[in-house]
Nucleic acid binder design. Structure first.
Lengths: 135, 135
DNA sequence: CGCTCATATTCGCCAAGGCGAATATAACAC
DNA sequence: GTGTTATATTCGCCTTGGCGAATATGAGCG
């Protein structure tokens, strides 16, 4: 593999990672599949801003989206290229230790498990792993 | 370490990596210390362009410079942060397999070992590891 | 001092991309 | 069809940063 040209465009990947909002999004997605409305709620950013950055990540090939009725779920799209994949894993391990990123994840869990979630999230499909962990 | 704030600015690092010329520079430096004139010769880009990108890398903290008379030598500045360092290693391993990067390194070796190098490089200090390997 | 060489910086110009505000689309309910 | 909800896109505006061209700095030589 990868003899014909770029297995994965390095420059494009790094451009995708070169923005704090996008890093926060990748961090929130984690190994799961997360609905857009949670990003908006947890990051406290405007919905168009979130959508724009998700579109950028999608164009860069690092996330994939799945529609479920009105909701869009985003998940990490692990690069096929082995080096890209390992690098990506390093990035996520790094994110896991950053202070703000940690707080973001905590807020996501809190919002998902809330007995009475914010109005905007009533009926929103929760990330699988968190919903499960709720018990 | 790293409890007070950012151990190493991730965003800044990725911005530094998000340019092909800068990736080519990092690749050429490798584990060595390389004089600016070689970058200009090997990459075939203008000297101001090379200098500007080196300055960018320096500001991002990923390379360091040392003056030796008229010449400036650049080397990789491995980040103190463990995650950043491992990520950096991944990047360099990835670079090592890219086609253009490989050709760049071959050109560097060729230029360094040439019996009669280009006029601009007469007397230029060669990268240590290559000069040594020349035998 | 002036001259030359190696490198760095500045100056316009232009494209990429970040932002908020507004608008468009897509799916569902009625 | 209308209306509502979730998400996406477009539109100006502004900043970042890439480029070539020109200029500045810094070190050595005579």
């Amino acid at each position: 593999m990868g003899k014909t040209g770029k297995a994965f465009d390095m420059e494009r990947l790094f451009k995708a990672l070169a923005d704090r909002t996008r890093l926060r999004l990748l961090n929130l997605i984690g190994g799961d599949e997360v609905c857009v409305c949670f990003f908006v709620e947890v990051l406290g950013e405007s919905q168009p801003k979130i959508s724009r950055h998700l579109a950028y990540l999608r164009r860069a090939g690092v996330v994939a989206a799945r529609r479920e009725g009105k909701w869009m779920h985003y998940r990490i799209s692990v690069p096929a290229d082995a080096h890209a994949a390992r690098l990506f894993a390093e990035v996520r391990a790094w994110l896991a230790e950053d202070g703000e990123m940690r707080r973001d994840r905590e807020r996501l869990v809190k919002v998902c498990c809330a007995v009475s979630p914010p109005v905007q999230l009533q009926g929103a499909p929760r990330p699988a792993s968190i919903a499960t962990a709720r018990g």
